[in-house]
Design a binder for these strands. Sequence first.
DNA 1: AGCCTTTGACCAGCG
DNA 2: TCGCTGGTCAAAGGC
Length: 114
Amino acid sequence: METEEEDREEQYTDPGGQRLVLPEDGHGWKKYGQKFIKKRGKFRSYFKCQKQNCVAKKRVEWSSPDDIRIWYEGSHNHASSTQGTSSSAANQYNLYAQVFGSDQPPSRPHDQDA
DNA sequence: AGCCTTTGACCAGCG
DNA sequence: TCGCTGGTCAAAGGC
């Protein structure tokens, strides 16, 4: 439906020196931090929308270039950069996108000690 | 020149 | 009370 699946591949550098391929959402994201979640044994990157009116945030968690998890937090104040031929789903509220299949929301069900 | 990326440190909240 | 983690910000460097 409103799922604008722009399958573009963006490359980000992994602390290990690898290249991660993230699907472009049609927005400009600015990376503002990266941390290693010991509780999960995975890396987590923090992205923020470049628009000042945009308070949307993007988070990427991955343990391997083949196992990446991405979810969005907040909502966009402007339509997707990718000219929405039709109505873009950029005005949705909290939504977490599962690019690599279905998974869990941003909420941590429980922190299993590592 | 501008823009983006990366790392470290700091802070806060919670157990 | 302390420790720990997670999250954000800042600065610098590079292209």
